[in-house]
Amino acid sequence: MSHLMELSNITKSYEMGTQIVHALRGVNLTIDEGEYVSIMGPSGSGKSTLMNIIGCLDIPTDGIYKLDGIDLSHMSDDEQARIRNQRIGFVFQQFNLLPRTTALKQVSLPLMYAGLSRKEREERAAAALTRVGLGDRLDHKPDELSGGQQQRVAIARALVVEPNIILADEPTGALDTKTGEELMDIFNELNEQGITIIMITHEAEVAEHARRQIMIRDGVIVEDSRSTLENIPDMELVPA
């Protein structure tokens, strides 16, 4: 059986002057279509590094990453950009919105790079913003929105292309608990529609929403709940 994602012995090192930082020291991981995975671990354990590699934002130092059975290291930059554009939606802790740009334009951008007409992109962007509850904030710029609203704009931007993967790096990290819970509802809903979600968090309550929990420490996976899950498919997860 073919997996959606297959990471074999992925390593990532950064050279800092004379020092070499090993952010990932050999990660083996498979993720299937429709999964809802949370990645937890202490700060500096390599969570973001892993997610950036999964999302084609960065390349591993060593190891093989296959998406849909295709080795990504054989892909050109432009092909990777296509994958990011059409198959993956990103939600970052720091929102990463364009300054001085309205919500509608932010959310239309991925569609522009996908080559859609202006009319179609604005319709779909407006629909995506409505879906995250910002139907009345289309013309607002980031500095006119609250943190929670900005993150919703980012989520709308991630889902407007109808991706089959959404990657979220501590999406609630900069938000209060209540706002965070509201966002989690959106992610749950998206997963129910069949979108694969991989979410980094350091909050156990947030990780609870996922069906599979992965624990990472010092650049290696130290715990993966899937082994248990596979044996008992319908079991409701309880926090450890």
Binding site: D77, R84, N85, N96, L109, Y113
Partner: peptide
């Protein structure tokens, strides 16, 4: 960076 992340080509 943002534009590239959401799919802009070079």
């Amino acid at each position: 960076g943002i534009r590239k992340a959401i799919g802009a080509l070079r």
